[in-house]
Write a protein that binds this DNA or RNA. Structure first.
Lengths: 217, 217
DNA sequence: CGGTAACTTGATTGATCATTCAACCAAGTC
DNA sequence: GACTTGGTTGAATGATCAATCAAGTTACCG
């Protein structure tokens, strides 16, 4: 998963912790779990990290620096239209949900809500991750140029895409039903269509039903 | 907090757990914490509940049955306009964020994301809580009658309000900044305004900036 | 008053947790 | 071949956790 130049111990720890925090959350992942998955001993972990929380910091740092390579690039490969890029990104989270039978998707969001009162450095990394994500969407919105009215607040709209994604993931995973995610994304699509003036890809100008039943894949 | 006919032990436990789960989450709340806050001994707790998880079930059940009395009624007192009711409800979450300096707001959402793989009964209570919340909003949307186009999918829109609230709470609490919440709600307001035909309260028909800086209260 | 059922007490249990540390090893340097 | 540096081993430590239970208390009922 992800990649790094070295296959050294430190990275094995981060990689293992990434997976486990994503799967079980921070609190429910024991150091022993990490040791097991990374196939090392406790002494090695504590050689590289002062404590469990510092592993979390490294994990969040890895997400932060890897957003381009591991999140945006795979989802945007071969996609040019900036608006479509946004919905491809959301599609990536949809895939994660489907692949895990709607149990988990966004690791940052889950961790952020789990740790209500994180130490300042942890909180700052959450914020930085969210900010980078929104910035990427904001770039798309700027690339969309005049297809969006000049009056549209691009930053607020980009944040709103993130808001929608996180909320949609929460509902879908709580219900164990991808349809909740799809309906939310469709609402967002409709919101976009209200604002977009038709480009190459003609935008439906009126809300239109989809996804009546459960999953659609 | 909340209320119940009796001030008996069982209710004291649920009340204490409600507060603690909200404040620290499920995993970080020890049974000892609950005992302390409820001012009882472990034997009493285990007399009423087979285990910690059953306390969680009771808490979720309490939220579920109390939504009308403890959530809707206080926020909707004196408000008639169904659309305004929706935004008053969101305002209630805003108040919770502000009062806790943006550390926590929606207990259900936090717990739902914390417990990735809850036992079926727990998961069902999460789903039921979300469903009731969305149903309340859906009722408002139906009460709005012809102010919304007939083509609008009221269920999907109601769910979208919930999606937005949960996502907005997550962003605001991660950044410790209420402005993230406000911007998201403003986007939702704009979305509504695209669809609403002007009622008594004339709806701004164009997005309009607000909240440039940090908090606005 | 005797009896019983509901409830409470709080020390105790055993598991699990994050963390520590002295001993060990391997590669590189002088 | 002595010494150092960077990394590894894994048993041990002490804290904390959810859960137990035998002994006690209270309230009600006949």
């Amino acid at each position: 998963m992800i990649n790094q130049v070295t296959g050294d111990t430190r990275w094995r720890i981060v990689e293992a912790a990434m997976h486990l925090f994503w799967e079980k959350g921070y609190g429910s992942t024991s150091v022993a779990d990490i040791l097991g998955r990374a196939a090392i001993n406790s002494g090695s972990l504590y050689h590289f990290f002062p404590g469990k929380q510092d592993v979390l910091l490294a994990v969040l740092e890895a997400y932060r620096t890897g957003i381009e390579q591991n999140l945006l690039e795979p989802n945007w490969r071969g996609v040019d239209d900036p608006i479509e890029k946004i919905f491809r990104l959301l599609g990536g989270y949809r895939d994660a949900l489907v692949q895990t039978e709607c149990t988990f998707a966004c690791p940052i969001g889950s961790l952020a809500l789990e740790l209500h009162e994180p130490d300042p450095p942890v909180r700052e990394l959450f914020a930085a991750n969210f900010a980078n994500w929104a910035k990427a969407v904001e770039r798309c919105l700027k690339d969309a140029g005049k297809r969006l009215p000049a009056s549209t607040d691009r930053r607020a709209l980009a944040e709103f895409v993130l808001t929608t994604m996180e909320g949609a993931v929460m509902l879908a995973s709580s219900h164990r039903d991808i349809a909740y995610f799809d309906r939310a994304v469709q609402q967002l699509r409709d919101y976009f269509n209200f604002q977009l003036r038709p480009a190459k890809t003609p935008a439906r100008s009126r809300p239109q039903r989809r996804h009546k039943g459960k999953s659609h894949a």
